[in-house]
Amino acid sequence: MRVALFLTCVNDTLYPDTGRAVVKLLTRLGVEVDFPTAQTCCGQAHYTTGYRHEAEPLARHFGEVFGGYEAIVTPSGSCGAMVRELYPRMGERARAEGRGEALAAALAPVAARTYELTEFLVDVLGVTDVGACYPHTVTYHPTCHGLRGLGLGERPRRLLRAVRGLELVELPGAEECCGFGGTFAVKNADVSAAMGTDKVRNAASTGAEVLCAADNSCLMHLGGLMTRLRTGMRPVHIAEILASTEEEPAA
């Protein structure tokens, strides 16, 4: 099976390790991964900040870059939800504004074929034991757009529970937002930091070494707070845990 990796602009620029981990993991599971180098950004920050008209060219670009693939896999619940939930909405709005079917038609194929990583593993590949080994105590934060937008449910936890050596501990208040929220993090920095601080304290209270999530943007916010709060925990993307093996452990 040949799939396109939609890495997201944040991961491409700041978290290449997550990208390498996705490639390693999917390759190990027999998937042929392509990274279309023309990919840039899904336009989520533009759209959710109110710049829908600036987001449209980015969405169209996404449609052109990824339109020809059977499946598009992304290690981000948030960007995955943008493509799957909000691209169709952008198409509908353009239609309602009398701008025709073009945008809806360009976005429909990619919206239908986009999967968040854990969803692709569990639903499409049908695996929960990916042969990983990660001998650490981990707590998992379900990020909002994966949890409530895509409905990832127990999939990430099922994958983590099957990892050898990994001890999964429950995060108190797991379903509460971490406070990142894209531009919310700077527009309402005080509330955002207060939410994040509560999330970090809850994570630290579990005694876990690692706070795991399926979205690096939320982890960037939480990791930035963790070092300030000197918790001694580290944020790690779920792809890096699932890619880790006995022979090649994660750094």
């Binding site: 491409d12 930091a193 930035g224």
Partner: peptide, 17 residues
């Protein structure tokens, strides 16, 4: 508004692409 309360992630040596 970001760095008042949060550290920035370190920049990687090369982007993924």
């Amino acid at each position: 508004a970001w760095t008042d309360s949060r550290d920035l992630p370190p920049l990687p040596a090369e982007p993924f692409r």
